[in-house]
């Protein structure tokens, strides 16, 4: 442990967790971080530091999302499972062919969406399940910030679908290549995808104009909108890449802000819910907090050469949780 360097560090405030298997994601249930394990279970750390292992799937956990009050997970057992703050888990759906649930995401008002193969499903507020099939396997899902509208990323583009409007045809935005992660800007004006190649693609929805952001060293696997939606923070480089979305033309023709340069690849980002602060995790185990206004960095933890795989802030922004490939994790009170 060499935390005695000049940079300020929070490592003495960490409550540490040792999971039995790799941590693939982390989400908060209120103030309690729930570490999503590669297989079978969530590991929840309650307010007193007690650990609770919640079995949710019978095999691999392939996808997860959290909205502060609940966590949804998709498994290779074909099940979509919702776990709430009372630590109760229930299957929201089971794929009738027991296909892998590749993607899950929460929507507004307790709605959720998931995908298996080429089919995207939603469960609306009336608990009805609707589905839409796209031309190739779904690469990612995201709900629009307003209206009940789902973006489905796939090969050669992304499709926007209004699940409650059966007469409205899904609207496909085309761009050649395989689109994986997908997210809407906070104002709903832009749809952004992370591609198989190390680039981001995007569309301005009003005029379908393409945006293309390149320069990454690796596939962008992690994206987060900063407080207020001013920036899209992204992984995939050896520094934090932030695309500006404030202003009339968003990031069009602009250079990204680049912070926290380092010697290892940045793999995970998480944005503070209220302040212009982004937590970043690198492939060699370093976790930093980065302030966007001046690039100031605070070391959260330096792990021993294991990739950081998961980062999340609690909804109130007071706590940060991180998890790693080898099952090490932790939660820190930011005060």
């Amino acid at each position: 442990m060499n935390d005695t360097q000049a940079a300020p560090s929070l490592s003495d405030r960490i409550h540490r967790v040792e999971a039995s298997s790799p941590i693939v994601a982390v989400h908060f249930l209120g103030r309690s971080p729930a570490f999503v394990l590669g297989e079978e279970a969530l590991l929840v750390v309650d307010a007193d530091g007690g650990e609770l292992r919640l079995p949710v799937h019978s095999g691999a956990i392939l996808s997860s999302d959290g909205n502060g009050q609940a966590i949804v997970t998709g498994g290779d057992d074909g099940r979509v499972v919702v776990t709430d703050a009372t630590m109760t888990s229930a299957a929201a759906a089971t794929d009738d062919k027991r296909r892998w649930i590749d993607h899950v995401t929460f929507g507004p008002d307790g709605t959720l969406a998931w995908s298996a193969g080429k089919t995207a499903f939603v469960r609306n507020t009336r608990n009805e399940i609707r589905s839409n099939e796209v031309a190739s396997t779904v690469g990612g899902l995201a709900f629009a910030p307003k209206g009940f509208r789902l973006a489905i990323a796939h090969y050669n583009g992304a499709t926007l679908w209004f699940p409650n409007m059966t007469e409205a045809r899904p609207d496909t935005f085309s761009w050649q290549g395989s689109h994986l992660g997908v997210t809407f800007s906070r104002d709903g004006k832009y749809l952004m995808t992370a591609m198989q190649e190390p680039v981001l693609h995007g569309w301005r929805l009003s005029d379908r104009k393409d945006l293309r952001m390149s320069g990454y060293a690796a596939r962008v696997r992690s994206m987060a909108w900063t407080a207020g939606g001013d920036y899209l923070a992204t992984s995939g480089s050896d520094q934090l890449i932030l695309w500006p979305f404030k202003g009339k033309d968003g990031p069009m023709g602009k250079q990204p802000k680049m912070l926290a340069p380092y010697s290892a690849r940045l793999d995970v980002v998480a944005a503070h819910p209220a302040h212009d602060i982004v937590a970043v995790g690198y492939a060699d185990g370093l976790v930093l907090l980065v302030r966007l206004s001046d690039g100031a960095e605070i070391t959260v933890r330096k792990l021993e050469k294991v990739a950081v795989t998961a980062l999340a802030f609690s909804a109130d922004g007071h706590r940060l949780a991180f998890g790693c490939e080898n099952g090490e994790g932790g939660v820190v009170d930011l005060g």
Partner: peptide
Amino acid sequence: RGDLIRIIEGLMRR
């Protein structure tokens, strides 16, 4: 093979 990328990543969880 896009499906292989997805499946191998999923298998690696186990």
